[in-house]
Structure formats: C-alpha cells, structure tokens
Amino acid sequence: MEQLVQKLKEEIITALNLSEMKPENIDEKAPLFVDGLGLDSIDALELTVLLEKKYGLKIQTSEEGKKVLYSVRSMAEFIRENNKG
C-alpha cells in the first residue's frame, strides 16, 4: 500500500504539473481539494483521467468521485480494492 501511495503521489505531481511539489510534501490523508493541495474542478477531471488511463478504473458517479478523490490515501484504497489485475 505504501508503495502505491508513493507512486500515486508522483503520478499526481506529473499529471497536475505540481513541479514545485515533492512527494514527501503531500500529506496522503489531507484533502486534495480546497484545503490541503488546493486543487480545483479541472484537477478533478485530470485525476479521473489518470485513474482510467493508468489503472483502468472508472468513477461511476459524482458521489463516488467525491469519496475517491478526497485524498491520496482514498485514491490508493480505491485502486487496491478495484484493480485486481
């Protein structure tokens, strides 16, 4: 799990072009949006594309999206639970 969290942090930095951010600066449990990293709705779309492209996972509803994209940890849990391959 820790390996996945680290990998996800690196992928998020690349996908969202957070060039001044390092993986260790991201608190895996902190909210990604508004507080925490301060991401916005365009970033939410980028993260949704990232999950689908890299892990073949689709977020089905906006409610599920809110839960999954809450933090790096919640994204990693979603991947671990659904990415059986």
């Binding site: 996908a15 365009i42 779309l45 980028e46 594309v49 689908e52 492209k53």
Partner: peptide, 9 residues
C-alpha cells in the same frame, strides 16, 4: 488515445 481519455487542460 483513439478519441478517448482526453486530458481536459
């Protein structure tokens, strides 16, 4: 990407 999974930015 065959017209799929397009990055929004």
């Amino acid at each position: 990407n065959d017209e799929k999974l397009l990055n929004p930015t």
